[in-house]
């Protein structure tokens, strides 16, 4: 599918295959990849996380405020991840412990996180970050920005762990049939909690790179990121009913979305169409999921 879309795009607009364009498609995926990976885990566990986009905004603001108050660049990243992880822990607690429907919990925390970020900044950009911090996102090794390596590493490690590491692999059991997983000795509650924390941490990582590369903290960073992540994960094989999905599949989903949106830019279509298309992509993802389920049931 990725290949088909890429091929069509290359035919329609030869510039698609320019090395510089391909690099820009690749770096454009830095932000979405970790979030989609985290979302895959949450979906595999039978949940959903709508708060990741807002967590990106909150983390970005917190990081920028810390740096502007003279904080150390070394500590800025751990602090960003702690802020994100804290929000994820709140999600995990409410879903795993208090059994509130995940979409409600994360809709609520989405609003809280986005609102808090806006309150903290009164809606303004926070620029003037120290150059050393900006270097984290913009610095290059062999002509490739650092974040590309980090994100690729995270995706590969995450993929292997979800595939092979027993404590994480149990997510598939927990998402397929939670009571049966419990009776098989799997601590479903702890796993679900960990899933939301991991998803938030991934969003935090995305926020670190966004804040650094764009050299500012902004409350509205990460808008609609949760929806792109859901679409990518579902296109990559995850299901709203839990128990399936892979990080590699989600990464391909992100790639597909990136190619499509690159196509928009190249073909000079109005950015306004992007909203329609992302909605339609979600509809397509839902339909794909529905037909997969139907096929399974009819067997």
């Amino acid at each position: 599918m990725v290949l088909v879309v890429s091929g069509l795009l290359a035919l329609a607009e030869p510039r698609f295959l320019n090395a510089s364009n391909l690099v820009s498609v690749g770096t454009g995926m830095i932000y979405d990849l970790p979030v989609a990976a985290g979302m895959t885990l949450v979906l595999a566990l039978g949940g959903i996380d709508l708060s990741v986009g807002a967590i990106i905004g909150l983390t970005s603001v917190v990081t920028a405020m810390y740096l502007r108050s003279g904080g150390s660049v070394v500590l800025a990243v751990p602090i960003a991840l702690a802020a994100a992880g804290g929000a994820g822990a709140l999600n995990g607690l409410l879903v795993a412990r208090f059994r509130v429907a995940p979409f409600l919990v994360t809709l609520g925390t989405m609003s809280i996180a986005r609102g808090t970020a806006t309150v903290l900044t009164s809606g303004y950009y926070l620029s003037g970050l120290p150059p050393a911090y900006i270097e984290i996102g913009r610095g290059q090794l062999l002509g490739v920005p650092y974040p590309v390596f980090v994100v690729l590493g995270v995706v590969v490690v995450f993929d292997v762990l979800l595939r092979r590491w027993k404590p994480l692999h149990d997510a598939y059991y927990a998402g397929t049939n939670p009571p049966a997983a419990l009776l098989s000795g799997i601590d479903v509650g702890r796993l679900v909690f960990a899933g939301y924390v991991a998803s938030a941490l991934a969003a935090g990582l995305s926020a670190v790179f966004m804040t650094s590369r764009l050299a500012m903290g902004y409350a509205r960073f990460g808008e609609l990121a949760e929806l792109r992540a859901i679409a990518a994960a579902v296109l990559g094989g995850a299901s709203f009913s839990g128990g399936t999905g892979s990080i590699l599949g989600a990464a391909l989903g992100v790639l597909l979305l990136a190619v499509i949106s690159n196509g928009f830019v190249l073909l000079k279509l109005s950015v306004y169409w992007q909203g329609v298309v992302s909605g339609l992509i979600l509809v397509v993802a839902i339909a794909v999921d529905a037909s997969r389920r139907r096929r399974n049931e009819s067997r």
Binding site: Y172, Y173, T176, N177, P179, A180, A181, L183, S184, I186, G243, T244, N296
Partner: peptide, 15 residues
């Protein structure tokens, strides 16, 4: 409460 119906027999045996 027992099976993971959508998973393979192998996955079930080693759950």
């Amino acid at each position: 409460l027992g099976l993971f119906l959508a998973m393979t027999v192998r996955d079930n045996i080693v759950a």
